[in-house]
Simulated assay, not measured.
Amino acid sequence: MMAISTTRFPARRLIWGLLPLACLALLMAFAIGAAVGETAIPLATIFKTIGNRLFGLDYPLDPIDAGIIWNYRLSRAAVAACVGAALAVSGVILQTLLRNALADPYLLGISAGASTGAVAVAILGIGGGMVSLSLGAFAGAALAFILIALLAGRAGSGPAQIILAGIAGSQLFNALTSLIVTKSANADQARGIMFWMLGNLSGVRWADFQLALPATVAGLLACLWHARALDGFSFGRDSAASLGIPVRRVQLILIGMAAFMTAVMVSLVGSIGFVGLVVPHAARMIVGTRHLLLLPTSALTGALFLIMSDVISRILFEGQVLPIGVVTALIGAPAFALILIRYRKPQ
């Protein structure tokens, strides 16, 4: 059962009035993500670069600055936005369906399976060089989810069974990853895998965005389509069934969609913690528990949070880029503690 209760705060009209401001904040985050780095670039140069690329304008620009903005920083911010939105939406789905305030996208063992797939490709050489790290991670994530889904199904497919199956699967795949790294990896390989496992946006480009965006949009639209069903699940499976909701079918669709979004994002950037755990709770503090409002708010908040976390990861230490998962944990852990204090139940 959800351990954290929420209260609807603003009226619906106010919420829809704030959405344009949220979109504007997201655009400003893109601009900051493109401007801030080891070399600061003026906002005017960023807008001119976008105009040249998207609208065929002909502003005179330094080709190095234009290349950094378009090929590196903007693509990185775009992928970060998709990852943040997808993980946040997945967190909302799992926290609602499982009625557990601590549920996050990695509860299904997807992160652990992706790590095993990645190390199998990078260290064991599975695929003979024809399989990329991202593809190996996606295959590992998919395998982990299938195994955990089968285990949960055999155990009864209730919230408790899903959680326990996810814990068991995560421990299994984490053990396999540790075994492979310990037995077969050299120091450089171990460091590279550790950096990837903590979340890494350094290598993403527009090709990755072309994978991340459709997965994010499809997942968000599917969840919005079932928003009323999710409202029913907030009161438990029995209550949802009494409202005429096909419980098993909706549960399968939404958990499968959450798993798909998470698997795609983890395969692209590695495991980034706390986004799918903290952002849904923060969004509930703003808009309440109605999923028609909660889902887009969580998506926008998650995108904004991850873009800004990526900026911090690039500037926190001069000449060094931190794994973004370190930054999200440093921000997310205190934020979650504040949320727990804010919504603690009276004894």
Score class of each variant (00 low, 15 high):
I93P: 03
I146F: 09
A152W: 14
V119K: 00
M130G: 11
L150K: 14
I126C: 05
A155Q: 12
A149G: 06
S134T: 14
A141H: 05
S134W: 02
V119M: 05
N100M: 01
L135H: 08
A86F: 04
L107T: 06
A118E: 13
L87H: 06
I93V: 13
P105D: 08
L102H: 04
G140N: 04
D104S: 14
A152D: 06
A103I: 04
G140R: 02
L143A: 14
L151V: 03
G156F: 04
Y106K: 09
Q95V: 03
R154M: 03
A141N: 03
A160D: 12
G125R: 14
G156D: 11
T116A: 15
A144P: 03
A141I: 07
G153Y: 08
G91V: 03
L135P: 03
A112I: 12
G109H: 02
F145E: 04
A114M: 02
I123P: 08
A103M: 01
N100F: 02
I123R: 06
V121A: 01
A103Q: 04
V119A: 10
L124G: 05
G128S: 11
M130C: 12
S115H: 07
M130D: 09
S115V: 12
G129P: 13
L150T: 11
G127L: 13
G128E: 12
L97D: 03
A118F: 08
L150S: 13
T116L: 15
M130Y: 10
A149N: 11
P105E: 06
A122G: 05
L143K: 11
L133M: 07
I126T: 15
V92W: 01
S134K: 06
L108W: 02
A120G: 13
A137D: 09
A114F: 05
A88T: 07
G128D: 08
F138W: 05
T96Q: 01
Y106Q: 06
L124P: 12
P105C: 03
R154C: 00
L107Y: 00
Q95D: 08
I148S: 11
G153R: 13
A101W: 04
L147K: 15
L97A: 03
I126M: 13
A122I: 14
G140P: 05
L87Y: 02
I126F: 11
Y106M: 06
L97K: 12
A141T: 11
V119Y: 05
L147R: 14
G128M: 10
A88D: 04
I123M: 04
P105S: 12
N100G: 05
Y106R: 07
Y106A: 09
V131A: 08
S157Y: 13
G140T: 12
V119N: 02
G129I: 12
I110T: 10
L135K: 08
L143H: 06
L97Q: 10
A149H: 15
A137K: 00
G127R: 14
I110D: 13
S134Q: 13
S90Q: 06
V89S: 08
F138C: 07
P159R: 05
